[in-house]
Amino acid sequence: MLNSIQVIPIEYYLVLSSVLFSIGVLGVMIRRNAIVVLMCIELMLNAVNLLLVAFSTYLGDGHGQVFVFFIMVVAAAEATIGLSVLVLIYRNTKGVDIHQLDQLKH
């Protein structure tokens, strides 16, 4: 596997993670189901992870990969909180469509 970074240019990873990131952003904006929105945010974070690992390997610098661990840590914590908030909402409304929640705009 060692020679893969000599075969695959960094640009490819940049493009791939940009595409994944944009799909995530698109999902956040286009979907109304809060759980799916949360999944799309996870997708965005994974695009970041991919790019970080790619940069880290190409630069020969371990900080990037360690950074990825912290992103995973935070993603886990965020998922916990996000899902508990969803449960909270569900208790109050029996549904998780974020755009049906418009109590605050009158």
Partner: peptide, 21 residues
């Protein structure tokens, strides 16, 4: 984002370190 790829060529891969990173 893809437009920003153009500048990335400045990074040369450093295989020696990459193996152990």
């Amino acid at each position: 984002l893809i437009g920003s790829v153009r500048g990335a060529i400045a990074i040369p891969p450093s295989p020696a370190q990459s193996a152990t990173v």
